[in-house]
Design a protein around this nucleic acid. Structure first.
Lengths: 113, 113
DNA sequence: TTCCTATATTCGTATATCCGGATTTATGGA
DNA sequence: TCCATAAATCCGGATATACGAATATAGGAA
């Protein structure tokens, strides 16, 4: 009887907003959409920013619990965490929809891997 | 034919989230609710923090366009700006409702003035 | 093993943000 | 006019956050 995984701190409203309050992270969410899994290499290609910057922002989104990652060989696939509480999911959906228009970013079609 | 008021920059998603990503500002919105007008002195009393801190956060909420202020004699009354776009109003409502439970803050009843 | 590619992390630096005391501004009353 | 109160703004300092180059790690293939 032991924890398989560290108990994640429950998501705070301020924590969610801090995460969404950065244009790079918002862009990443726009590119992955709420129901799609995307590869990091596609994100790096789409957002011309250095790879380390993208990776750092993805790590922050992961730490907040907003996205989950899955490894497939050397590639990492990210998607929005659908186990988030209702209030967080609906907020993300609303804001990502609006941000897509503001930033002109459409969800990626799975391409690289 | 001249502008009566400076054209406000349209609210960006990241801008809204930055504003909501601070616990003090979130608390202020929880105390005023989405339909109530409250006096600064009540806000200062409710959130024990120095008056300058409260005033600074209110100014930021005003600059973002999230709240509007009305002067009545020496007192200032703040309320959520109901002219915000749909996506912003529904987001604020959802997040303020959740933050109220997380922070244990109920909307104020108009008391001081 | 060694090499190659994808991703993550480290590190130093630059910038942004938050804080609270002190001061200023605005208003009403004496 | 002068005074008192409410709120806004200024200021210096502390802390947090973002950045990108360099490096480390992980996995697959040869």
């Amino acid at each position: 009887m032991h924890a398989v995984q560290a108990a994640p701190t429950p998501l705070s409203v301020a924590g969610l907003c801090k995460c969404l309050g950065d244009e790079s992270r918002l862009s990443l969410l726009c590119l992955m959409g709420v129901d799609r899994e995307v590869c990091v290499c596609d994100l790096v290609a789409a957002l011309d920013a250095p790879q380390s910057t993208i990776s750092r922002h993805l790590a922050q989104l992961r730490q907040c619990g907003l996205v989950v990652a899955r490894r497939q060989a050397t590639w990492m696939h990210y998607r929005v965490n659908d186990a988030l509480p209702e209030w967080a999911l609906t907020t993300i959906e609303t804001l990502v929809n609006e941000a897509r228009e503001q930033l002109g970013l459409q969800p990626l079609q799975g391409q690289c891997c």
